[in-house]
Design a protein around this nucleic acid. Structure first.
Lengths: 251, 251
DNA sequence: CGGACAGTTGAATGAATTCAACAATCGTGG
DNA sequence: CCACGATTGTTGAATTCATTCAACTGTCCG
């Protein structure tokens, strides 16, 4: 194989699960894959409001706003974040195609965080009230939402561990490994990919200054762990990187 | 008023919500207060396995273990935490009476974190499979669980913000204020209470060293914000403390 | 082309940690 | 009920990892 210049994402956008009837939006496939018959599907169709496009930097919803929709990401990526009120913000989530946004607003009926597009993003807006109705009729949907939220909590725990107990190197290593796994699980390359977050965002997400991110990334490159050119990264020694991240088992 | 020695918690353990049929466990009252008729109640009763007591330091469940029960805390308090594998751990949750534990295991069917008693604690173990069955019949139960998890996610976001973006003073101030609110909402004193966590645990929870916790607490005391004697705390200037915490609105 | 933004680098600074030693308190068994 | 070992809490001094500040380069996009 010729060592090509680090490229963008693989062209084909394959889905990682079995082909399922996919109507106007990827939501069934990725979020609600439990055995639904065609009647259920039709019912589900009725809750899909419409798909929408957001450009880099545009905000999907703001904290405090009434919960109207749940957002299913079809393509692109989104960051969610919360703020202290005096300007400081913490990115709490990084979401890609197939993930559901806004579920944390369920209890209060108001969004608790803000979501904005990291790049051009296509979403399905799902009316929450109608989803509610439908979920009453199809219990597996509620169950599926329960599962999605439990995964979210799991991820949050991991981020808290990172923010509270890991040093800068471990944070970056974990970040890269976790991206790698995420891409791999979606049939993209797990060794070579583009970062959709800026250095500043990565730093914010990991609780580090932008400069620290840059320095550690450089150190990784000098140690032969990665090759990085701006947003393009290539993990050349995943094993050693994993060792630094102290990442074991459960993803 | 004679400035009495800081005392323990108020004697009467009042519940904070309307009196509801409460059978062998506080679970209905606090976790599932939606309109259930007596038939539903009887059904719910059948899922309660038994109540159990854990003493300080005892572990309720460990990460990786099969999810068998959800735990409803009747009295006492519990910490949950995750680890790096090389000894370091991060406390991710601090739970008191009326709260549900183990929900984050729903997706994987295995507990993701470890839970241990901070003091003598009384819990109801609820068989997850039977809860599942019952939830199929009473949709409001699943909905209630959804809400509980969304609250959890909301709390996690707040802790991530704290760990990532707040300095030591803000962390302690927020911790104290949040405890205060929690006690107040349960009809305990919001100005005078006992910490069930040790300095070490508090530090761990807030991403600080034990010594830092002590020093900041002393500084608070010197500034007349609090009075603290070992585990007993009295918030003498909640307003100023809130200002330091930069805590506004949504709890 | 030019302005804005993203990324990079070095030097100085600092907030919190680590280390070490000690004091107070708890709890448990003699 | 007291004593003693263990745990929990406290303090000062030295250290450090990451931040802040400032200056600069490269790159994207209108």
């Amino acid at each position: 194989m010729t060592k090509a210049k680090i490229s963008l994402l693989p062209p084909a956008q394959q889905q990682h699960c079995e082909p399922v009837t996919c109507n106007n939006c990827g939501i069934y496939q990725l979020c609600l894959p439990l055995g639904l018959d065609q009647g259920d599907m039709t019912l589900l169709d009725s809750v899909i409001k419409r798909k929408e496009i957001y450009k880099r930097g545009q905000v999907l919803y703001r904290p405090g706003e009434q919960l109207d929709y749940v957002y299913a990401i079809r393509s692109g990526s989104v960051k969610t974040y919360v703020g202290t009120g005096d300007g400081r913000v913490q990115i709490t989530g990084f979401h890609v195609a197939g993930e559901l946004l806004g579920l944390s607003a369920l209890a209060s009926r108001r969004y608790s965080n803000e979501a904005s597009a990291l790049e051009t993003v296509s979403v399905c807006k799902v009316e929450i009230d109608r989803l509610d109705e439908v979920a009453q009729k199809i219990p597996s949907i509620q169950y599926q939402m329960l599962k999605i939220m439990s995964v979210q909590i799991r991820q949050d725990e991991e981020l808290m561990l990172l923010l509270g107990k890991r040093n800068a190197e471990e944070r970056l290593a974990e970040y890269l490994i976790s991206l790698s796994r995420r891409f791999a699980s979606r049939n993209y390359s797990g060794t070579q990919f583009r970062l959709s977050m800026s250095r500043l965002d990565i730093g914010n997400y990991l609780g580090l200054a932008e400069e620290t991110v840059i320095r550690i990334l450089r150190r990784f490159q000098e140690s032969g762990l990665i090759t990085a050119d701006r947003r393009s990264v290539c993990l050349t020694d995943i094993r050693r990187l994993s060792a630094i991240a102290h990442l074991d088992a459960a993803a």
